[in-house]
Amino acid sequence: MISNEEIKQRQAQLDSEEIIFEWEAIYPAIIGKNSKLARFCLGALPMLIVGILYTWFVVLKEAYITLIPMYVGLTLACYFVYFLQLSDNKCCYQLTQKGVITYTQQNIPESVYRFFRGFAWFGMGICVVAAVVVGPAVFVGAGAFALMSFAFRDFKPKVDKRNYLFWGEVKIYDIYDEHNIMFVSSAPINCGDTKLFYNNEDTKNIIINNLYMILKQPDFLRVKTSNDAYNDEFMQKMFKSYREQNPIK
């Protein structure tokens, strides 16, 4: 059985390997046939429902002056949910002779980071002025706002770097409906993490050709969705191996 320490050592060695092919891809936070509908239901639909209900309440109470700040708040909330929670992901892949290095981050415009950093410094300034004018007691009611402002003052993108090995027997899945290629090796790794996304067929063909040269005619299966790949016998075997070596504690 392969030890976790040996796997980590070989993963670290990937950083010094020569890069054979490098590419970038944008893929959605929610993958699948109904991903756009799911993103709408999770992001815009709740805000739309709240807006309709509040408008109905305002009409009944004739408090029309509150509509504008409410709509502005809902728009900002929708903006926040979409860009920070449901945004697309940007991934850079580096294919080497012994594995793949991935760098993943949310595909959020820099303007969003600047907005929240500016909002944070503005909020901290407001808290300082309030503390001078009113005194420390102001933080009893505005403590949460002050903490939030402090947390966002250095808001910037976070990059998730991971190294995946070609080890022993390897099988490649061309998941054409989801625009990704998944490889699974006999090393006990989490199979669901080894998806190599692409944005066009030319890139896909280059990736597959390079994988064939590196792995010397690996086992290959073309499937429609990830579920088809997960139900494959080889994949189930590798999942079982991973669970045995990484039991849930």
Rank of each mutant, 00 (worst) to 15 (best):
F119P: 10
N199Y: 03
Q85P: 00
A63F: 06
S226M: 09
E22C: 14
V138Y: 06
Y79T: 06
Q11D: 04
V112W: 07
Q97L: 02
T104H: 05
M213W: 10
K158G: 05
P28L: 07
I31L: 06
N231C: 08
F83Y: 12
K33S: 14
S3K: 10
E244H: 08
R222T: 05
P109E: 05
M124Q: 08
A151S: 13
T75L: 08
T75Y: 08
T96R: 00
D174Q: 02
F152T: 05
N180V: 01
I49A: 03
A25E: 07
A12P: 09
A38V: 10
Y176D: 01
F80R: 04
D232V: 05
K161Y: 12
Q9M: 15
F152D: 09
F239E: 02
W23R: 02
V50Y: 07
F220G: 01
M238E: 02
E22N: 15
L60Q: 15
W56H: 11
V138M: 11
R243K: 13
N199R: 03
M238T: 01
I19W: 12
I68N: 00
F183G: 03
F116Y: 13
D228E: 10
A12M: 14
F139K: 11
E18A: 04
C92I: 12
K171T: 03
T96S: 01
N163T: 06
V223T: 07
Q106V: 07
V134E: 10
Y242V: 01
Y212A: 05
L95Q: 00
F57P: 08
W167G: 13
N4G: 12
P247N: 07
Q105A: 08
E24L: 09
V223E: 02
L95M: 01
V128K: 08
L76G: 07
A77D: 10
L67M: 09
I214D: 01
K156G: 12
R243M: 14
A130P: 05
K161Q: 12
E17V: 08
Y230Q: 12
A38L: 12
D202I: 12
I126H: 06
R153S: 14
V223N: 04
S149I: 03
T104C: 08
R162S: 12
T104G: 00
L53M: 09
E244Y: 02
V59T: 15
I208K: 02
Y164L: 07
I30S: 02
P136A: 08
R162T: 10
E17Q: 07
M70W: 09
L86D: 03
L42V: 08
Q217D: 12
Y212V: 02
E178N: 05
K61R: 13
N227M: 13
P28S: 04
L14R: 01
L221G: 06
G125E: 00
V159P: 06
E18D: 05
G32H: 04
P157K: 15
L48R: 03
N231A: 09
F80C: 06
C127F: 14
